[in-house]
Simulated scan of single mutants.
Amino acid sequence: MSRRMIIAGNWKMNKTPAETTAFIETLKPLVAGADADVVCCVPAIDLVPAVQAAKGSNISIGAENMHYEESGAYTGEIAPNMLVSAGVSHVILGHSERREYFAETDETVNRKVKKSLEHGLIPIVCCGETLTQREQGITIDWIRQQVKIAFLGVSAEQAAGCVIAYEPIWAIGTGKVATAEQAQAVCAAIRSLIRELYGVETAEAIRIQYGGSVSPSNAAELFAQPDIDGGLIGGASLKPDFAKVVNYK
């Protein structure tokens, strides 16, 4: 099966609403002919202006997080129906920064994944190991556990439409990049796990991204790997050069 590439920018805590509008206007013509799904995942305050600016283009807008309840006394949180109503199509769930700084767990990620699917959002489910875990030789065990718990109670049909982002924590924002072989090995292990859980058809359909210091200079080699279906891009997604990652071929 030929999977369509998906290249998503994770802006993290950057850009004001005005800067968001200006950036997406600049980006639109640069990625107009892209042979990949293009997503900009932006801070909550930027979602509405981003959706407005991207209208009529091939750029989809994603959120960087979401709560697992429909509504209620969760000050500062955003519900899935709010995202849908704003015109958002994707949502990053379980990013390592959310786990490290905001006490997210595999269990809360699982609740968010199921809730996002209920609302028709496409979850970008993050997993990744620390440098210590890699050095201890437990990378694959760790990733399998994260993915298994994230997809608990998710059907094969739902899983097929999800995106998994493998982001080695030691490569995020550090300038260190997993080699194409290292990234491929883990992404292949993730696809193998999905095959175990759901069967060949789902495993062939699900898209698996690599993230961690992806840039215009290394994108082509990474994205050429058989089990890497695009990237979740941090720093490089904040500049017009993001278009060079999108148009990596």
Rank of each mutant, 00 (worst) to 15 (best):
H95V: 09
A103Q: 15
R98T: 03
A103V: 06
G76C: 14
P80T: 01
E97I: 09
H90T: 00
E104G: 01
A73R: 13
G94M: 10
A79E: 02
E97T: 05
M82T: 12
A103L: 05
V84A: 09
R98H: 07
N81K: 14
A103K: 05
G76P: 15
M82W: 02
Y68Q: 12
E100Y: 02
A103W: 01
S96I: 11
G72I: 03
R99C: 07
A103C: 10
L93W: 05
T108Y: 07
V91N: 05
E69N: 12
I92F: 04
E77F: 11
E107I: 05
S85E: 15
E100G: 00
S85N: 15
N81R: 10
S89R: 00
R99M: 06
E70G: 04
T75H: 14
T105P: 12
H90D: 10
I92E: 13
I92Q: 06
S96T: 08
Y68R: 06
D106M: 09
V88P: 03
A86M: 07
G87D: 08
G87R: 09
G72L: 02
E104M: 02
G76H: 15
V88Y: 00
V109G: 11
T75L: 14
E69T: 13
Y68P: 06
E107C: 08
A86E: 04
R99D: 04
T108V: 15
E97N: 05
V109Y: 13
A103M: 05
F102R: 07
V84N: 09
S96W: 04
G94D: 14
E104R: 06
V91A: 02
G76Y: 13
L83I: 03
S89T: 07
G76Q: 14
H95R: 07
A79N: 10
G94R: 02
I92P: 10
H95K: 12
S89A: 06
A86P: 01
Y68L: 03
E100I: 00
L93I: 15
E104L: 05
L93A: 11
M82C: 09
Y68G: 07
I92S: 10
V88R: 00
L93S: 11
G87A: 09
N81D: 14
I92H: 08
M82N: 08
T108Q: 13
S85I: 10
E70S: 15
V84R: 04
S89C: 01
H95Q: 13
R99V: 02
V84K: 05
R98V: 02
N81C: 07
N81H: 14
A103R: 11
S89W: 00
E107M: 06
V88N: 00
T75S: 14
S85K: 15
R99F: 03
E77Q: 13
A73M: 09
I78N: 03
E70V: 03
Y101H: 12
L83D: 11
G87V: 06
